[in-house]
Simulated scan of single mutants.
Amino acid sequence: MKPAITIEYCPKCHWLLRAAYMAQELLTTFEGDIQSVTLQPSEVGGRYIVCINGNTIFDRKVFGGFPEIKELKQLVRDVVNPDKNLGHSDKH
């Protein structure tokens, strides 16, 4: 089964649009590689976490801010399809 991504965001911080944008980018980039991207409002203030099959790959508090979309794509790629070329978003 293909991996499922969850983006847990703080609705009190108004991060829904950021989460939706990131979900759109991930769905477009990993169209054949993932099962779904779920947006999940958090009950914990200030939380913004991205998980793949329940395993955290990004936590805003640990990272010290939000990732650039290319950084997030690289984190997801490294888990779901390590051989995938991300084109201009790839690290060199």
Rank of each mutant, 00 (worst) to 15 (best):
Q24Y: 01
Q24V: 02
E25V: 06
E25S: 09
L26G: 01
L27A: 09
L27Q: 11
T28R: 14
T28C: 15
T28M: 15
T29D: 08
T29G: 11
T29L: 13
F30T: 02
E31L: 14
G32P: 02
G32S: 13
G32K: 06
D33S: 11
I34E: 12
I34H: 12
I34C: 15
Q35W: 11
S36V: 05
S36A: 15
S36Y: 06
T38E: 15
T38F: 13
T38G: 12
L39S: 08
Q40D: 08
P41D: 07
P41G: 05
P41E: 00
S42T: 05
S42A: 12
E43T: 08
E43H: 03
E43S: 10
E43A: 09
E43W: 02
V44R: 06
G45K: 02
G45A: 04
G45N: 04
G45Y: 00
G45W: 00
G45P: 01
G46F: 03
R47D: 03
R47H: 06
R47L: 10
R47W: 05
R47M: 08
Y48D: 04
Y48S: 00
Y48M: 02
I49F: 07
V50L: 01
V50I: 07
V50E: 00
V50D: 01
C51M: 04
I52C: 06
I52D: 01
G54V: 02
G54S: 03
T56N: 14
T56S: 15
I57M: 12
I57Q: 09
I57C: 13
I57Y: 09
F58R: 03
F58N: 05
D59N: 12
D59K: 02
R60V: 10
R60H: 10
K61N: 15
K61W: 12
F63A: 14
F63M: 08
F63H: 10
G64V: 07
G64K: 02
G64C: 11
G65I: 05
G65F: 04
F66C: 07
F66P: 00
P67I: 01
E68M: 14
E68K: 09
I69Q: 04
I69D: 10
I69N: 08
I69W: 05
K70S: 15
K70V: 07
K70F: 15
E71W: 07
E71I: 10
E71P: 08
E71H: 11
L72R: 06
L72V: 09
K73S: 10
K73C: 14
